[in-house]
């Protein structure tokens, strides 16, 4: 059994990383990053079967694709703290000449990143291609992907969702960050999408829900169940119900912190609510 306390400590440290990264450059997307901190920590530490060193082709390991690239702070923090690059490099986030671009890219050669993302709606297609490459290679590992709920308004997703079930891409687990928020407001205000669960099911996917998407045990159990559903002829969708801005009280339950950095005072409050565990970068 994983040591939940250790994972919780890591999550707290990742939250500190996120806050400090976006504060330093007064830009970036803390809300969605904080909401997915537990998911990333669980994914990279317990769920995925990963090789020690990074190789673009990722033969013989599980792979992850981030489609909603604006939550790069949580991605970078967890990649660094999983050993892909030095944690000190988090200091360079969004600065000139950095490998840590505002949105993730392979262009600068940052280990751990296999595709550029940021322009929304493209990641599921890429994940499907990587999953089909695994099948061609006789590689039984899993492809994981993460998508925002607002991102599902992009039509390419539905081309991909239709294709994945039609072609029985059953080595794919696509997680939707169901935080109900997007830049202009709640998803229900901006463009109500009805039942996302119903839509995925109608498109032929196996759909699982993680009601407590900020609870590490719930995530571990839910993702283990998702994994047990792979190889059954259907792609697997996980609806991860998260709270945007989770772990920093004034950032929670609002879209206000989607793409806004805290000021000095707000940073201090946020860090006070997440005391240092594994050491700041």
């Amino acid at each position: 059994m994983p040591n939940i306390k250790q994972l919780e400590d890591l999550t707290t440290q990742v939250r500190r990383d996120i806050l400090r990264m976006v504060h330093k450059v007064n830009s970036g997307h803390p809300g969605g990053s904080l909401g997915c901190a537990e998911f990333f920590v669980a994914l990279y530490n317990e769920i995925m079967d990963r090789n020690d060193s990074f190789d673009m082709n990722g033969i013989g390991e599980d792979l992850f694709f981030l489609s909603n690239g604006h939550i790069s702070p949580v991605f970078y923090s967890v990649l660094a703290r999983s050993g892909y690059f030095p944690v000190e490099e988090l200091n360079t986030f969004r600065l000139i000449d950095s490998r840590l671009q505002g949105h993730p890219t392979t262009h600068e050669g940052l280990p751990g990143v296999r595709i550029a993302s940021g322009s929304l709606g493209q990641g599921m297609s890429v994940a499907i291609g990587a999953a089909q490459a695994k099948k061609l290679n006789g590689d039984g590992h899993i492809i994981y992907s993460l998508h925002g709920d607002g991102e599902l308004q992009e039509g390419q997703n539905w081309e991909a969702i239709m294709y994945a079930s039609a072609k029985k891409v059953d080595n794919l687990i696509s997680t939707i960050d169901l935080n109900g928020q997007q830049i202009d407001g709640s998803t229900d205000d901006v463009l109500p999408m009805g039942s996302i669960k119903g839509k995925f099911e109608a498109f032929g996917w196996t759909v699982l829900e993680i009601e407590e998407g900020n609870n590490l045990e719930a995530i571990l159990n839910g993702m283990a169940e998702a994994k047990s559903n792979t190889g059954q002829g259907k792609p697997v969708c996980v609806l991860l119900k998260t709270v945007m801005g989770n772990g920093v009280d004034f950032m929670m339950h609002t879209h206000a912190w989607h793409g806004k950095a805290p000021n000095d005072e707000q940073l201090a409050i946020g860090l006070e609510q997440n005391t240092e565990t594994l050491g700041d970068y």
Binding site: M56, N57, G58, I59, L63, F65, R114, I115, Q122, G123, M124, S125, V126, A127, I128, G129, A130, A131, Q132, A133, K134, L136, N137, D139, G155, Q156, E159, A160, M162, Y163, A166, K167
Partner: peptide, 24 residues
């Protein structure tokens, strides 16, 4: 080694990008 994607060119380009990850 052939993938019929239907009338969905955006998805086709993304899948093609993904297939390169794995050496195709």
């Amino acid at each position: 080694r052939f993938f019929q994607v239907g009338i969905a060119e955006a998805n086709m380009m993304g899948i093609a990008a993904g297939l390169t990850i794995g050496g195709k």
